[in-house]
Design a protein around this nucleic acid. Sequence first.
DNA 1: CGCCGTATTGAGCGCTCTCAAGCTAGGTGG
DNA 2: CCACCTAGCTTGAGAGCGCTCAATACGGCG
Lengths: 228, 228
Amino acid sequence: MQTEPFFCPSCQFSSFCETEDSQRSDPKQLNSILKQRIRIKKRGVLCAPNHKFRSFYAVNKGTFKTFQMDQDGNELIRNFYFAGEILGFEAIYTQNYSFSAVALSDAIVCEIPYENFLDLLHHQCALQKRFIYLMSQQLNLGLCQNYTTADKRLAAFLVDLSLRLQPFTPTIYEITIPMSRQDIANYLRLTPETVSRTFSKFQKNKLIKIINKKVKFLKLKELHEIFE
Amino acid sequence: MQTEPFFCPSCQFSSFCETEDSQRSDPKQLNSILKQRIRIKKRGVLCAPNHKFRSFYAVNKGTFKTFQMDQDGNELIRNFYFAGEILGFEAIYTQNYSFSAVALSDAIVCEIPYENFLDLLHHQCALQKRFIYLMSQQLNLGLCQNYTTADKRLAAFLVDLSLRLQPFTPTIYEITIPMSRQDIANYLRLTPETVSRTFSKFQKNKLIKIINKKVKFLKLKELHEIFE
DNA sequence: CGCCGTATTGAGCGCTCTCAAGCTAGGTGG
DNA sequence: CCACCTAGCTTGAGAGCGCTCAATACGGCG
């Protein structure tokens, strides 16, 4: 464990993981079982297919994508994980990681060993409830992939993104998209060209304004109406 | 609660839910908190959007689809649930059900009140582990939706179906598809016509044989190779 | 400033959709 | 028992959305 001070205000486990030194040895705190904080460079690999599942990870900083490759080399992206979110719940069932997790920017994660975590749950009803809540939350990810057209999928994606990045943005009307067009395309089962064209169309219709990786929402309501 | 004898060999909770009369009052058993067994006719509605989440459901008999409607009236199907599987985990996070669940055939479900269930978890570490395992399992559903073409999606769907229906089929080389072409199409983001044509193509290529709702797998290996 | 990966834009193709017409199976009533 | 009816499935023809391939523009970084 690093000893430098650590701030995790947006972490979904923060209330169970006091980082004050005085609390470090409290066996009911999550940080008592944290194995390590891992620094990962952009494009670095956190986990890969067939890696034995022993821990899941709380993203402290940065963004990750999880994906599997199909035979043609397409990255079938399952999800994106932002700072504060937890990665790896799927592998509790599969035993081995069935996907790769790669950092989209320099990142830091907290490694939480699953067996130790289960022990902790027995003594911490509140944490148990929290954990189940977070797993349920993950079942609600990826709904934007369900829509039928490129317009709907991208509009829903942008809205989802704006909600999940909210802790890190000064206003909900502007976000910085942390992944490439290619990643968005792989996630939404489109091509980068279609994503780019749809962005341009939204901009032409004055729904958004694009400045490189920044997106300003000009008419959030109308963007909503595209998909629901 | 009904008093008729009940058999749930394939239920994912069966080992925690003794239905012997002698066990009925064991407060550590799941059946001590079951609220009711509900019989639902084909096309019957188990839950609908904005219904308050209080219970989840173990499917005892039959098959369900969960879906939300988009503005154009498309059923965006999220998942199918077969006998033995658990439905409703998503709503722990959302508080209200955000989707509809409709029976595809006459069905029976066990209603499990969530608050009581949480109480039970505190005293039942094994059940807790089991529950987390099942939630993780659900995170691994729907992977066939990720593939890029109609061929891959349908092939992956058929293989997934054959695995999940295994407890109810004499051989893994033959299944009875419990949902309509329209439902499959909605699930895979295709049209019924495309689903039908792709079935026909697979049959023409001697990968499967279709007899109405029955599908015989002639070359399961080659079907696999279509998508991975 | 120049390089290279990424993003945008364009043109044409093809997979999937739309619309429409038969076909099949299962249910109903005479 | 059979004719009919209806919903669901299959098949066909043509259209269109998104893909492929290609050229150009942009932007981050040395």
